[in-house]
Simulated scan of single mutants.
Amino acid sequence: MDLHQTLVLIHRKLKEKSQDTNLSWSQKHVLRYLYRHSVSTISELAALEGVRTQSMGATVQSLKDAGYVVGQPDPKDGRRTLLSLTDDFLKKVEATLLIKEEWLQERITERLTEEEIQALQQALPALNKLAADA
């Protein structure tokens, strides 16, 4: 099995631990972006996705309706709305991340030898380079 296949399988297993299967790719992308960056605007999100502001507005509205996203007026520019994750959704995300981390840690400790665990740790810098945006 090659690296790509292995990473795909691990990703699938971790995805099984998520509870966001009914969300579209665009909705997931918005939620991930807001989780990483705390706040954004519809215009910024639309530019990131390469879609019209109106299309992103519909995506954001569906996330607001689901209770995942909230908008507040920008204190610097009242014409803009700053979007962020709701506290309830943030708790759900953090709980899901914890479940995924625990699953992965259990798999590592239950299935790998000490030498294999050390090999994984030694491979982390190279894998981080592959995953880096720059």
Rank of each mutant, 00 (worst) to 15 (best):
33 Y>D: 08
78 G>Q: 11
5 Q>M: 14
4 H>G: 10
95 A>L: 12
131 A>K: 12
44 E>C: 00
33 Y>V: 01
69 V>N: 02
42 I>F: 02
91 K>A: 15
75 P>H: 07
22 N>T: 11
36 R>Q: 15
74 D>H: 08
114 E>A: 13
83 L>P: 02
49 E>S: 00
106 E>M: 09
38 S>G: 00
18 S>C: 14
86 T>I: 11
74 D>P: 11
11 H>A: 15
35 Y>W: 10
92 K>Q: 13
33 Y>T: 02
67 G>A: 11
51 V>I: 07
86 T>E: 11
48 L>F: 01
57 G>L: 08
102 E>K: 15
78 G>W: 14
100 K>V: 07
53 T>Q: 01
30 V>A: 04
46 A>C: 00
34 L>I: 03
93 V>P: 06
83 L>E: 01
52 R>I: 00
79 R>F: 05
33 Y>A: 02
18 S>M: 13
92 K>I: 04
53 T>P: 00
107 R>W: 11
123 A>V: 04
21 T>M: 11
16 E>A: 15
119 A>I: 02
36 R>G: 04
45 L>T: 02
101 E>H: 03
85 L>V: 06
34 L>D: 09
120 L>G: 06
66 A>I: 06
128 N>E: 10
75 P>C: 01
93 V>A: 12
93 V>F: 14
22 N>I: 01
27 Q>Y: 09
49 E>V: 00
15 K>L: 11
53 T>V: 10
63 L>H: 02
18 S>W: 07
3 L>R: 15
12 R>N: 08
101 E>V: 13
67 G>V: 05
